[in-house]
């Protein structure tokens, strides 16, 4: 297991480094002068020159790359043109909001979708199966922004019981300074009113964000369970009279969870993408909102920071999932 983890970690560093290189290349092959693009056509030549020096653009490419990489390693992406602060500071502020949203989404995806997928497989071809298949299909094909808008409409219809903007109602004041996750910190500090309010704010964005993943995970869980049900080892246990629920919940589940977990890792990429839409629609003050603003205002340092952090998110999530899958399936540990 030890060398397995080491190898995974080495691969992880490699991918992250590659990601940093690709982003650097993309940012540098852009036609036109980044400083000029950032300042707009009205800026004077002197202003552009000054920004170029500030951004280090007057240095040779190799020096620029070295500065950039050493910055990335220290978690420094330079100054944001938009907020005029260090990008890393902006990101640190925006991160907990996104993290909270993504964590709840992942919980929904595993705790709702996997049991439903198993249920559908157990009741193969029944009404439950057909309904859940329809639901998962709709989940997969409905664009995140359509879901978000339909949820907003729904919230309007239900008399705004569920809030549709922000993380907290404006009349609440609370600073999350322990884990920076609002719900967790509010609970730790015993502020049930804040926690409740934060949960209400989370519901719609998390639902919007999880629809696609829930559909996908349900689908995969169902087909994995159906596939495993046909295997001979299930027959072995059945022929020795081991009860059906033990076979399903102990023996089949462990094998069947490998496929949806792997999918969950890959889905993470589209989940991060969808977060851009969802955060925008629900005015959620996370990394994605920050990213959209940075992109629209051509704030390069901020864009690079957002892309790298998103990549980091994805790679870490997949590393964790690989480790989990390695625990679940001893054969993978041995082979990989």
């Amino acid at each position: 297991m030890g060398s397995y983890l080491l190898r995974r970690a080495a691969g992880f560093v490699f991918v992250l480094f590659g990601l940093a290189v690709v982003i650097f290349v993309i940012a540098r092959i852009v036609p036109g002068d980044p400083a000029r693009i950032a300042l707009g056509p009205l800026a004077t030549h002197e202003q552009v020159l000054q920004l170029r020096t500030e951004m280090g653009l007057d240095q040779p490419a190799i020096i620029q790359f070295a500065t950039y990489i050493s910055g990335v390693v220290r978690g420094e992406f330079g100054k944001s043109l938009l907020t005029n602060r260090q990008v890393s500071r902006d990101l640190a502020e925006a991160l907990p909001a996104t993290l909270e949203l993504v964590l709840l989404t992942l919980i929904l995806m595993t705790c709702v979708a996997m049991p439903l997928g198993m249920l559908a497989a157990r009741r193969h071809n029944s009404a439950i199966d057909n309904i859940s298949r329809l639901v998962s299909l709709l989940g997969v094909v409905t664009p995140g922004f359509v879901v978000a808008i339909l949820l907003q409409l729904l919230a309007a219809e239900t008399g705004r019981f569920l809030p549709i903007t922000g993380r907290l109602s404006p009349d609440m004041s609370f600073s999350a300074d322990i884990t920076h996750l609002l719900v967790v910190d509010a609970l730790l500090r015993g502020r049930l009113d804040v926690a409740g309010d934060a949960v209400l704010h989370l519901i719609l964005p998390a639902l919007a964000l999880s629809t696609a993943g829930i559909g996908q995970v349900m689908r995969i869980t169902r087909s994995a369970m159906l596939d495993i049900a046909r295997r001979e080892h299930v027959d072995t246990l059945r022929s020795f009279g081991v009860p059906g629920h033990v076979i399903a919940l102990k023996y089949m589940l462990r094998l069947a969870s490998v496929a949806p977990l792997t999918i969950l890792g890959l889905e993470f990429a589209s989940l991060i993408g969808n977060a851009f839409v969802v955060e925008l629609v629900f005015s959620w003050p996370g990394i994605a909102s920050y990213g959209v603003r940075a992109i629209l205002s051509k704030d390069f340092n901020a864009v690079m920071g957002v892309v790298l952090v998103s990549g980091l998110f994805f790679v870490v999530a997949n590393l964790l999932i690989d480790m989990l899958v390695g625990v679940l399936d001893p054969r993978l540990r041995r082979r990989a």
Partner: peptide, 12 residues
């Protein structure tokens, strides 16, 4: 059972 590998659940 017939196939000694397939007859066992591989992860237990």
């Amino acid at each position: 059972h017939q196939d000694p590998l397939a007859a066992f659940n591989p992860v237990f």
